[in-house]
Each structure stands twice: as structure tokens, then as C-alpha cells.
Design a protein around this nucleic acid. Sequence first.
DNA 1: ATGTAC
Length: 467
Amino acid sequence: MNGKHITKLGFERKAIGLALAAAKAREGAGVERGAILYELKSVQADPAAYLAGGVYAELATELSEQNALSEIKKGAALLPSPLPYAVWGADLIEPGARAQMDVAMRLPITRAGALMPDAHVGYGLPIGGVLAAENAVIPYGVGVDIGCSMRLSVFAMQPDALKLEEAKILLLKHTRFGAGVAFDKRERGDHAVLHETTWDDQPILGHLFEKAAAQIGSSGSGNHFAEFGTLTLGAADLGLEAGEYLALLSHSGSRGFGAQVAGHFTNLAERLHPNIDPAAKKLAWLSLDSEEGQAYWQAMNLAGRYALANHELIHARLARALGVNVLASVHNSHNLAWKQQVDGQELIVHRKGATPAAAGQLGLIPGSMADPGFVVRGRGHADALESASHGAGRQLGRKAAASKLVKKEVAAYLKERGVTLMGGGIDEAPQAYKRIEDVIAHQSDLVDVVAQFMPRVVRMDSGSEDI
DNA sequence: ATGTAC
């Protein structure tokens, strides 16, 4: 047992010597190293339990003092009650999501927030939550899939000119779905984001580069999809005449790269807030004045650009295979944090499953695998922190969907709407989602609908159970 | 959402 073992556990300053002394004493008593490390971790997790006496008492005292000091420094105590925040579609939102938002509105760094009509429970901040913080960023206020985003390409082609069989072949050939999935070396795509020097700025980014390079242009699992469908423009917009167009809509994120960045920095944030109220544990933040906060900000934005690059490759491959021009395209990130002016002050606005909707800003709000999605234009509502929903939102959790929904009824729903599905888990069934029409209706003051997209051929990961 | 773990 040496100092290296101790510092690796995260002990600092005077605690290093005390931990080492205690460890030596335990070694002397014949305790194995693994057991000692476990004991040290237990003292670290709950020093109060070791204050009374024993070999770890001195260490526990020092740790308690260090924790108290760091909590004062970081101002970690929660407000006694949540700051007020606006809610859209309150009758559509489960109590659990409200409770999570209430906790987020009690963080000392929180200045404003809002809840979108597709809100449901997530880790830390609810999905559909918007949170403005002062000079701090919350890794789980952004979410695990950093930079998760949407992209739409409108093609110079009539919707029915693409035959069903060809659409299926194209999607199968040019997209990759599933956890851990990557491209073979010779099939790999390339993009400017892979040539940024940012990857050299942090060890974690360097370590993840190879994974990112292998997975670029892929789509992942869960609710991610790529689908051909019909875009209906009721009036001229997006530089297009009114009418119907063949279009491609995709939902993808930052894959393993973003997930590992998220995991790394939320662990770091939790370690820096050892005494945070347990209710807010997953909302641990990083100050933008700290090295850690700046490192997350850089990594988060790289993951955001990487996620958009994934879409660009998916769309470029399919457009090229189709051999048609792209007439218009729209994209937006819906899991990210932005610097934004709020009431004349620059704040960090986290959108975790929320579409940026500044006045005039275009965005995409999908429904489900067999329900329409919408191209929207933001109205810049201040109380929503210039945001809207990022989809319909779950009505049933993944487990509830798998146990309650019947394959036959899902298949009938798809057939009725003329949707062909490749892959897709029962937990992604349309019946697992809120009615998109209701969700859109509840945010008519946040966005205007520009166009409607009806999916026709959908590819997703297979999930736990196929439909 | 990720892909098998401080």
C-alpha cells in the first residue's frame, strides 16, 4: 500500500497522509489490500460514521472538515423551495417529471427554468426540461446522449417516385443501428469534425477518438431512427413551393463518444459535490470558472458537432445513392447547453430533450415511428427560455410499454398509416408515446408549424423485442 | 442512450 493507491481514491491534502497511516495500521493487522481499499472508500463516502473512534477516526474528521469547507465554497445547499417556472401542457406531464424539475429549480446555481409538454422522468433533469444556470453547467442537465439531434433533407423528388423496396434497400445499406455498432474500416465515413485539433486538447477526447471515427455516420439504438417519408408544405416556405416532397428525417446522437464524455464528467461533478442533497445528486454541476467545467464545455460542444456530423453523413450517403438534389434541409440539437441572454444576463441554458425555439429559428419535432413529425418555427417565448418540446414524449416507460403493449395492435397501427418498419422495439411503439397532435397543440405559443412530415419507411434498432 | 462497469 502506497501513496499512489491513496491519491487514486481521490484523497487530498492532509487526508492523504492520514489515509496512508490508517492503511499501514490495517496492513499491520493482517488485513488484505482489497479490504483496506474498500474500508477507505467507505470512510470517504460517509466520514460521519467513523468519527466516534477507531483507526479511521482522524481521517474521518479531516474528511468531514474538507467536505464542509468545499460545500461552503461551492454553495451546495438547495433552496428551501423551488424557483417558479412555467409549464406547458401540465395535464400531459407525469408527477415524477414535475418533482425532478422542482429539485432542479432549488439548485443554488439555477436562475430560471421551464418544462415542455413532452416532459417525462429522466436521470437528473427530466426529459423536456429547460434549465438556466449561472456560470455553471450540469452534465446530466444535458443528458447522456450529448448533442442528440434531428435533421431533415427535402429532396427534388415526388414521394411516390421512391418505391418501397428501394427505400428499404437504401436504408439497410447506408445506415447502421444498434448499441456498440460501428463501420468496417473501409466503409468508414470522414468529416471535418474528425480533423479538429480539439481531440488533442484533453486525454479523454484523445482516448475516444478512435471510437468516434469508427462510429461516425451511425445511428445507435433506443428512439433513434432514419426514415423516408412525405413532407407536406401547406404554403411556400423553406425556399420551397407549397406541395409534397420526398424527405429524409433522422434522429441520432453522439454515440459511444458522447455517452462516455457524459459519464466521465457527471462522475467528476458528483465527486466535487460529495455532500450534495441526495435528491440532487444527478444534478451535480461544474463551475465554468473551474478547469473541469471548461473541459466539459469543450467536450460537450465537440460531441454536439460530432452528432450533427453523424446526420450529415447519413443524409449525404442517402442523397448520393438516390441521385437527387437536396432542395432544403433543417437541423437542430435538442440535448445541449447554450450560452444565452436571459433578462439581460448571460446564463447557461440546458435543454435536455427540448428544441431551441428563438424567434424565427427552425426546428424539428418528431411524433413517433408512425405519427407525423413537424417542421416548426420558434416564437421566442421568454418564459420557455426560447424552447419547445423535442418530440411527443413518452406516455409509457420502456418496461411498461414492453409489458402492456401487444405486437398485433402495434402492427395494425403501422398498417393503418401505411408505415413500413425495419427493426424497432415494442418500447418504441406509437402507443408508448403521447399524441403528438396534443403536444403540438399545447405549445402553439412556443412554435408555429411550418410543414408536416409523415414517415413511410422507418429504420430503427431492434431493441429488446421486435414488433 | 451506451455497451458491460471503481
